[in-house]
């Protein structure tokens, strides 16, 4: 069943409050909604990161499903072991073979796109039935806002500071979901918590497909992106409205933009509300705008029609 309205969404909370995520941390929202989709027959693997340290400080845990953290760079390999193990133990009747157990990795951008990428690639290639959810806050937030492979162009971080010579990150964001898609796995999608039904339906689809799935979710970070926590969801929405973030899915080779944007906002609406972009000149913003325009053109071409419209405001 598809989630059509908010009233379709399960009430059960499998992430308990009392966790130590920053006030307004959108990762909390993403994980909560993910667990609502997955339900109790779920094992979560979580690489080192914000979600891990803030939900599992002994003797307290916020998890109401089985959960394991092992290290930073290996969540996909741990999940592979769990999946293979359940498969063989079900074959041997040690675990009830009729029981469907979801295996989900919830990883940040560091643990997924950078240090954990090798393990992820291995898991995808081997075809383990695991759903990997990347909550992408675009920097190493857990260690205090250092640049990652998914930090966007020009963004300030503590390792891409604003100096006389260099101003912010000089490279563009790594297209993680597309690199994952190149592994030809059954289901890859990008999602945005502001569009929660779209995101949750993608989680659902990811759990249903036979084989690995990957959902790349944008996650505004109040601490690292430097904004008032109350506008976290608004910023997420602006990312899609400006096409800085495009919600798409690739389901068994079929590409679809799931949230169309007939009239696009200029990227400055997204950029000017975030402290990490404070130093940007109008020209810098135009550079980003041009980059986004090109991306939009590419995506529209891929779909074969205009799913993301022109900039109108």
């Amino acid at each position: 069943m598809h989630y059509r309205t908010v009233f379709d969404i399960p009430r059960d909370e499998l992430l308990a409050p009392g966790h130590g995520l920053c006030g307004g941390c959108v990762a909390g929202t993403i994980v909560r909604l993910l667990l609502k989709v997955a339900g109790p027959n779920t094992i979560v693997v979580n690489p080192t990161g914000c979600v891990e340290v803030s939900t599992t400080t002994f003797p307290y845990t916020s998890w109401r499903v089985p959960y394991i953290h092992v290290a930073f760079e290996n969540a996909a390999a741990v999940a592979s072991g769990i999946e293979a193990s359940i498969k063989v133990l079900q074959k041997k009747n040690v675990i009830d073979p009729s029981k469907k157990i979801n295996i989900i990795v919830i990883g940040g951008d560091g643990g997924t796109a950078d240090i954990g990428f090798q393990a992820l690639s291995g898991m995808l290639e081997r075809g383990h039935k695991v759903m990997y959810v990347l909550y992408d806050n675009e920097a190493y937030m857990n260690t205090g806002i250092q640049r990652s492979g998914t930090t966007p162009l020009f963004a300030w971080t503590t390792t891409t500071p604003i100096g006389k010579v260099l101003k912010g990150k000089i490279q563009v964001k790594k297209p993680v979901a597309e690199i994952v898609a190149a592994h030809r796995v059954p289901y890859v999608a990008t999602a945005n918590p502001a569009y929660f039904l779209d995101m949750m339906n993608k989680f659902k689809r990811g759990l249903d497909v036979d084989g690995p799935s990957f959902i790349h979710v944008i996650q505004p970070c109040t601490t690292g992106w430097r904004y008032d926590p109350r506008i976290g969801i608004k910023i997420a929405r602006l990312a899609t409205e400006t096409a800085m973030w495009i919600n798409w899915e690739l389901d068994h080779g079929e590409f679809r933009v799931t949230v169309t944007v007939p009239k696009r906002k200029h990227v400055r609406h997204y950029i000017r509300v975030q402290g990490r972009f404070n130093h940007l000149t109008d020209e810098d913003i135009e550079t980003i705008q041009k980059y986004v325009d090109k991306e939009v053109e590419r995506i529209n071409k891929l779909v074969g029609k205009e799913v993301i419209g022109p900039v109108v405001e």
Binding site: A71, S80, I82, A84, S85
Partner: peptide
């Protein structure tokens, strides 16, 4: 794809 993942997978497998 590596020994790092070999031990990681063993940890995951033993953990269930």
């Amino acid at each position: 794809e590596s020994e790092h993942s070999a031990m990681s997978a063993c940890i995951g497998a033993a953990a269930v």
